[in-house]
């Protein structure tokens, strides 16, 4: 564990807490892509179900349980109590176009040809692009509540710090994980446009609005 990875994980955790606060405080999930949230739940289930047979550390176990539980809770809330506030007409990204290629890539690129390793690869590729329905929704509406942008900023920050963590781990322990690196690079790059608007508008105290 190094400081970059720890802060990254805590940002990831914070992003979900921010999302839960937004949904609870406003009793609404408007502006949040249901598709992205379902994809994240799929990502966590595909990657973290090994929590039952693969022990790494108490920290690792806690985080896995936290991510599966909260992602389930978010999807449950968006299906049930907050269903009517969903931005359905804006959440129009075709999820098939990212799930199918992720599955195909996982079958081609994996560490070992086993069910769990292919699921791991699938989850890594899917996580890289799971934010696309959310970014698409943002583009469709052209604006976002400030708390929603903080959620996205924490998610993007988490990914950016993972890149720093990998550079650090490469030089300190010779750590190499080409699949995670390529997917992580793509995942972080997707946030560039968002971060530009976030830094130039939201952090200057203005509304998030696309030109």
């Amino acid at each position: 564990m190094n400081i970059f990875r720890l802060v990254a994980d805590l940002l990831h955790l914070a992003s979900i807490v921010i999302l839960l606060i937004k949904m609870y405080a406003t009793n609404s999930c408007s502006g949040i892509s249901f598709k992205t949230q379902v994809l994240y739940l799929a990502v966590f289930i595909a990657r973290y179900l090994d929590v039952f047979w693969h022990f790494v550390s108490v920290y690792n176990t806690f985080m896995k349980v936290f991510f599966i539980a909260t992602a389930s809770g978010v999807v449950w809330a968006m299906l049930g109590p907050l269903k009517d506030s969903r931005s359905k007409s804006l959440d129009t990204f075709r999820w098939e176009f990212i799930v199918a290629p992720s599955a195909l890539l996982a079958i081609i690129f994996h560490d070992r040809f086993t069910v769990t390793e292919i699921f791991w690869s699938f989850s890594v590729f899917l996580e890289a692009v799971a934010i696309l329905p959310q970014l698409h929704l943002l583009q469709q509406s052209g604006e976002a509540e400030t708390i929603t942008t903080h959620y996205l900023a924490a998610l993007g920050g988490y990914r950016a710090l993972y890149l720093v963590n990998w550079i650090y781990r490469y030089f300190t322990e010779g750590y190499v994980d080409v699949i995670a690196w390529c997917a992580g690079l793509v995942q972080t790059a997707l946030y560039c446009d968002f971060f530009y608007v976030y830094f130039t508008r939201v952090l200057q105290g203005r509304r998030f609005a696309l030109p």
Binding site: N60, Y175, D177
Partner: peptide
Amino acid sequence: ATKVAFHDEL
């Protein structure tokens, strides 16, 4: 460079 034997990251 080495590859860790298992996935230790989240």
